[in-house]
Amino acid sequence: MDIWNIFDTEWVPIGGWVETALQWVVTHFRFIFQAIKVPFDIVLTGLEDGLTQAPDLLILLLIVLVAWQAGGRRLGLISLACMTGIGLMGAWEESMTTLSIVLTCVVFCSLIGIPLGVVAAKNDRFWMVLQPVLDLMQTIPSFVYLVPIVMLFSIGNVSGVIVTFIYALPPVVRLTNLGIRQVREDMVEAARAFGASNRQTLFKVELPLAMPTIMAGVNQTIMMALSMVVVSSMISVTGLGQMVLRGIGRLDMGLATVGGLGIVFLAIVIDRTSQSFGISARERGHRKWYETGPAGAVRALIKKD
């Protein structure tokens, strides 16, 4: 053995170990991972069926109304322009698939991330353990866990949602934790001083006051989910990402551009709309949501009669 070139030999065959471990998990516990897929599958299929099978114009109208309600007339018009652009480019079907994947991911990230963040804010030790896990989820290049995900969950849109979920979960946990911790201490103390239980304090005082920060987390999660669209198309997730990937593969610049533009337009609509949800009632001048936007317009009409 050449002592000067000891690193020619692989002393720690970590790759082999991981492979063996993964094989073992796959052969013995695959059913668990298949079971985990079920809730993701149900939500994704529901959303996707709804978005793709309904008439295009109805969905367009719905998206514009939601954007108008959340962010005012200007955002409504921007959304109208963006979504019409996607439709005219011929990427409507694909963008609906991508939208349903992103929305499914947001549903699960919020469902799991917000409670995790609340517990983390209440328990310093838990937060100390959770922090490195979140760091890991965000820093590991997503390509690395594509392979084990495929082996455990197989390929397809549901696996795509799970990959995206892992990547996009941290911000909502972090910002929920931050938001709850940032609630002024005397606000919480006042709630306790008037006889509120921990649960009441959380739901009546802490969560509402932390909501703008939590919504900023949800917004970040959405943006990260969108940024995973192209990567996840490598495990045969359909939608706009696949258009880009196919375009790259075939050096079809046109197809890649359409896919890319579609992602940008979709991102604008989702980002602005979700950001608008995070603006608190205080900053809107204490008007209730139903007093503005399309709902407000309808209300005004009804009141006039």
Binding site: D186, M187, E189, A190, A193, F194, P208, L209, S280, R282
Partner: peptide, 12 residues
């Protein structure tokens, strides 16, 4: 009943 220095009224 308790009254606080910085009011601690809930803004929402």
């Amino acid at each position: 009943g308790m009254v606080f220095q910085h009011m601690a009224l809930w803004p929402h």
